[in-house]
Each structure stands twice: as C-alpha cells, then as structure tokens.
Design a protein around this nucleic acid. Structure first.
Lengths: 247, 247
DNA sequence: CGTGGATTTGATGTCAGTCAAGATTGGTGG
DNA sequence: CCACCAATCTTGACTGACATCAAATCCACG
C-alpha cells in the first residue's frame, strides 16, 4: 500500500463517542500499538482492508459503505451496509480477500492494529471485540439468508426500510426521517432484486402511504410500527421463533 | 430439561478423532468442567441447545441435522447443514432461541460446558474455539447469501451438491458417491426453492449426465470438477474475488 | 439552461411457484 | 417372502412474480 495515500496519523480519540463506544471501536483504537488515520473515499471506491487478515479496520464517520461480493460474470451481491458508527472488518471470508465499497462519499477512521490477526486473537481484550463483531455479523447474515430465501420483494423492502430506519433514522413529529443515499441498484444488489423492481416496489409502498418520498433519497415513514408489521423479519435481528416446551 | 432424557455421561473421548480434532470438538470436551453425553434424535426432532447461550453444544456422530428458522406463517429456511464431525452451536442469533433440527435419525455427543457463554468467553482457549466456530459460520453464511441472492435454481443445486460432495462424499473409481439423506423439501428450504422445483432441477442434472441417481437419496457424481464448473460459488467458501491493484 | 446519469414506468418474457395427478420407495404386517 | 399402505418423489399444466428491454421523466451539476 502506498504511503502517500495516508494523511498523517491523528490523535487517538473518537469523533462520535456515543456510537463508537457502543460498538467498541474506541477500544480498538485504544489498544497499544494501534494507530488511527482519517480516510475518505469517493463513491464506488474500495475500502482497503490491509493485507493478512484484520490488521486494518475502519470506523465509518459519515457516508455509507457496504461489504460486496462480485462474481466473475459481474453479478454482484451486497452482504451488509455500513452506516456511521459501524466497524468495517474484513471478516467472514476465508481464503479470499474481502472488500468493502463506498456507496457514497464516505469518511472513516482507519485503525491499523499493527499486527496479524493471529497475534491479535492472543490478546483477550481484542479477541473479545473481534468475537463480538463476528458474532453480530453472523446474526445479521443469518437474517439476510432468511430474507433472501423466504421473503418476497415487497417484504424484503419493508424489512430493509425498517432496519435502516432503526439504525440511521431520526424521529421528527412522530414520523421517521430516513435517507437512502445509495442507488436503487445498490439496494437491489443487497436484496437480491434488480433496480427496476426496487423502484416499482418503492412506488407501490409510496402509493400505500406507508412511506413518503420528498426526493428519491429522502424518505419519511409516518408509522414505523405499521410498516414493520407488513413483513416478518423486520426485527433488527433474526426472526424470533416462539419458545416451545421440550418434548 | 428432564434428567431422564439423559443417558449417563460417558468418558471424555472422541469417537472419530480425525474429524473431531480437525474441528476442535475434542478440545471443547477436554475443557475442565465439561461433560459429554450420548444423544440420539429422530427425524424432525429438535436438538436442544440448552438455556442461556452456548452452554450445550453437540458434535454430530451420524445422521444429518440443520439450523432452521421458521416464521410465524410457517415459512421455513434452513441456514446450515450439519454433517458428522460438525459442531452444532446455537450462535449467531441474538435475542432469539436458535434451533437445530435432525433431518434424519441423528446421533450426537452433547457437550455440556457447564457455565454461561459469558464465562466461557473469559477463558482464552475456549474463546478461541468459539471464535473459530463463529467465524466459519459467518463465512458459510455469507456464501449462502450470495447463493440465494444471485444464483438461479440450477446453480444453487450445483453449488449445493458440490459442497456436500466435498464435505461428505467418498471417491470410488474416480467418481464421487454421495448420499442425500434429507428430503427434497429440506433441500428446497436450504436453497430458497420449493420441493417440486428441486426435484425438477435434479432430474435435469440427471439427464445432463453430471450426476446419476441409484435412488432418490444415493447419488454419484462422475466428474466433480465438471459439476463445480457449472456454477460460480461451488467453492467451499465464499466466491474468490480476484485481487486487484489498489488505485 | 443544457447535459448526462439515475429513476420511474411500461411491455413483454422467463423462471420458479402452485395445484394436481401419477410413480417410487420404504416400512409393516400377513 | 410378498402384498399393501403411506409418505415421498416425480412430472405436467397453469399462474404469477420478477427480469429484461426500452422509453420517458426527473434531478444534479456545470
């Protein structure tokens, strides 16, 4: 990696303590030997993960990124959206490089942990953080599997909007304000659909009154609970399976 | 959980050292405080995970099981098949109970780790094992996401057969012998299809000569590489994305 | 105000789902 | 050992949801 791509390292602190602390990002940065650097990426740019495992992670400060898989024939699947506060960590792919991609102009704090993944796992504190990231990632991924395997297009979009509203939306006068800064194609590649279908379904949702669009990227959800009720799996994590008495 | 369901604990050893060691199961069992019990489950039976996190895990000795999610309206999605040697661990689902389900008569070694997940994570050795399980699970789950999101039915079945052949098949005279002990519906619920479609596609694969069926559950693949070449993602882990020179 | 990319909408095609009818299979009991 | 039965699997006809191709509209930016 070329050195001149890096602005000089900045102090070790957290731009948005609330979210960072919540997600343990500060604790990564606080690890002795870690260095933090401001980075910014243009839309479509790939966010480098560093060589040899999880030596570099990123904390998203603004914008939106996604973990992306592209097949040889060009088919693309987004596996996870990363919003401000999220930790981007190239986990979950063995024997393959993992890419994150900026979907809009994105700023991150890049944290160079300064050693290999194997060495990091020997440190109990860091290991616990990595475990937590991986575990959360697995929970999200399993939810995603159920969405793609068993929900129809409308349900997928409802679950997607609900999830994004909960993660990034703001309440105003009882309604939720939500921005969808990624393109329709990005949404489609996340939901296993195509861009035209996403557009059509969003139009239907618009007509139904469950959501309003002041522009293609600015969305208002008057009643989030009502929206969420339109699809199973609109929960933040995987479907709850009712507990049963064991036989 | 009723005590009389449990046969008396057996010695701490591994029935199939090769696979167990490979998958770290023996190390779970070797942990001080763990106890191992033989269990067997009928087809359709749920494999209890124990209360309060990952205190109970299972090592599959024979048969086949799967991690399963069922929505309120009955739609079902299998998230992972567990074959002999695999460790079943109720990870990846937060705020929800996670069920594994026997797809055929299944025997396991149930390992009671004797304390809560939180306590286990404080033990570096066990923590590393749990991390490895979770990480492997995430890799599989991400592959699954790409399969469901971007492969058509035929490609999904090809990837499925290839994966299962590599995990459970035996070579004989250059061909791979493979058994599919689960029902067509189980396969369908794993691949996001329905049973009739699975049956149709298998018939087409049969006609193409890529696989032969001596019975609905006994399958022979004369040329596994040729089969794998019919679909992207027939790799054991996620699609390999060619390394690029960074901009 | 003009331009180009993104989004929306429309017409049509295709793959997989649904419903329904047979064919296999495996297990049970005579 | 064989016949029967129930469950599973296979196959067919039709339907429906999403993809594809194409055109029109919107929007951001210079």
């Amino acid at each position: 990696m070329r050195d001149d791509l890096y602005p000089p390292p900045v102090a070790r602190c957290c731009p948005d303590p609330d979210r960072c602390i919540k997600r343990n990002a500060c604790r990564f940065a606080a690890r002795p030997g870690s260095t933090v650097t401001q980075r910014s990426f243009a839309r479509g740019e790939r966010i480098p993960a560093g060589a040899g495992g999880c030596v570099h992670i990123h904390v998203v400060r603004s914008g939106m990124a996604a973990a992306s898989a592209v097949m040889r024939d060009g088919r693309r699947q987004l596996m996870c959206f990363h919003v401000p506060g999220d930790v981007i960590c190239p986990f979950g792919v063995r024997d393959a490089e993992c890419w994150a991609e900026a979907l809009t102009a994105t700023e991150t704090w890049e944290i160079d942990l300064g050693c290999s993944a194997r060495e990091l796992l020997a440190e109990p504190e860091v290991s616990a953080l990595l475990f937590d990231l991986t575990h959360t990632g697995l929970a999200r991924s399993l939810t995603h599997v159920v969405m793609l395997g068993r929900l129809d297009g409308t349900e997928r979009l409802v679950a997607f909007l609900t999830d994004l509203a909960r993660r990034t939306g703001r309440r105003r006068n009882g309604a939720w304000q939500l921005s969808l800064p990624m393109s329709r194609e990005d949404i489609a590649d996340y939901l296993g659909l195509n861009a035209e279908t996403v557009s059509r379904i969003l139009s239907r949702i618009k007509k139904s009154g469950l959501a309003r669009f002041r522009s293609p990227t600015e969305c208002e959800i008057p009643d989030l609970a009502l929206l969420a009720a339109q699809a199973p799996l609109a929960a933040p994590e995987v479907a709850r399976i009712p507990a049963e008495v064991r036989a």
